[in-house]
Amino acid sequence: MDHVHEDDRLVVRLDPGDEVMDSLETLRDEYDIENGFLAGIGAVDRATLGHYDVETQEYSEEEFTGQFEVTSFLGNIGPDRIHAHIQLGTDTYESLGGHCSGARVSGTFEILVTLGETPLTHRLDDRTGLDVFDI
C-alpha cells in the first residue's frame, strides 16, 4: 500500500495481494481517522459480500472468487467501524454487489478518503437492528 496525505484527504493505492479492509484499518489507526468517506475503483480476485435482511435483522455473507473489476467502492470510516459497499463486474459483464467485509486486490485498487470533522461513531437502532451514525 502506498498513500499520500493531502490537506483533507488521503490518496491510496493498494497493490496485488493487499487486503482492502485491513489496509483501511491501518490507515485509520495511523492517521487517527474519526470521519472519512471512501470512493474507489480497482480489481480484486476475492471478495466477501454481505446482505442485510431488515425483516429478520440478520446478515448473510458469501465469498466470491474470480477476476472482478471493482466498478464502485463506497463507504465511510469512523473510530469504531469501517462500513463499505462494493460493486463487482464479472468477465461476462454481470455484476455482484453488497456490503464489503473483505476483498483482496488482484491488480490495483485506488481509493480516495475524504476526511471530515464530525466523529462517525455508531449506535444500535432498535427499529432496524443496524448500527447507525450517532449524530
Rank of each mutant, 00 (worst) to 15 (best):
V54Y: 14
V54M: 10
V54N: 07
V54L: 11
V54T: 12
E55V: 08
E55Y: 06
E55I: 04
E55P: 00
T56R: 11
T56K: 08
T56C: 03
T56A: 10
Q57D: 11
Q57K: 08
Y59W: 15
Y59L: 05
Y59M: 13
Y59H: 10
S60Y: 05
S60H: 08
S60G: 07
S60N: 10
S60D: 15
E61G: 05
E61A: 09
E61M: 10
E61L: 07
E62C: 07
E62H: 13
E62K: 13
E63Q: 12
E63R: 09
T65N: 03
G66Y: 09
G66I: 04
G66P: 00
G66A: 02
Q67A: 08
Q67P: 02
Q67K: 04
F68Y: 07
F68A: 02
F68D: 02
F68N: 01
E69S: 09
E69I: 12
E69Y: 12
E69N: 11
E69R: 04
E69C: 04
E69H: 06
V70T: 08
V70F: 10
V70R: 01
T71S: 14
T71K: 10
T71F: 11
S72K: 03
S72G: 05
F73Q: 07
F73E: 09
F73A: 08
L74H: 15
L74T: 15
L74Q: 15
L74W: 13
G75Y: 03
N76S: 14
N76A: 13
I77D: 11
I77G: 07
I77Y: 04
I77P: 01
G78M: 02
G78E: 05
G78H: 00
P79K: 06
P79D: 15
P79C: 10
D80I: 08
D80L: 09
R81P: 01
R81S: 08
R81Y: 05
I82M: 01
I82H: 00
I82K: 00
I82N: 00
H83A: 13
H85G: 14
H85R: 15
H85L: 14
H85W: 09
H85E: 15
I86A: 06
I86Y: 06
I86C: 07
I86V: 15
I86S: 05
I86Q: 07
I86G: 04
Q87W: 11
Q87P: 01
Q87A: 14
Q87C: 07
Q87Y: 11
L88R: 01
L88P: 01
L88F: 10
G89E: 14
T90N: 01
T90Y: 07
T90L: 01
T90R: 01
D91G: 02
D91L: 13
D91E: 12
D91W: 12
D91Q: 12
E94R: 09
E94T: 11
S95C: 08
L96H: 05
L96K: 00
L96F: 09
L96D: 05
L96Y: 07
L96A: 03
G97H: 05
G97A: 10
G97T: 05
G97V: 07
G97P: 01
G98K: 02
G98L: 04
G98F: 05
G98I: 06
H99P: 03
H99T: 12
H99E: 14
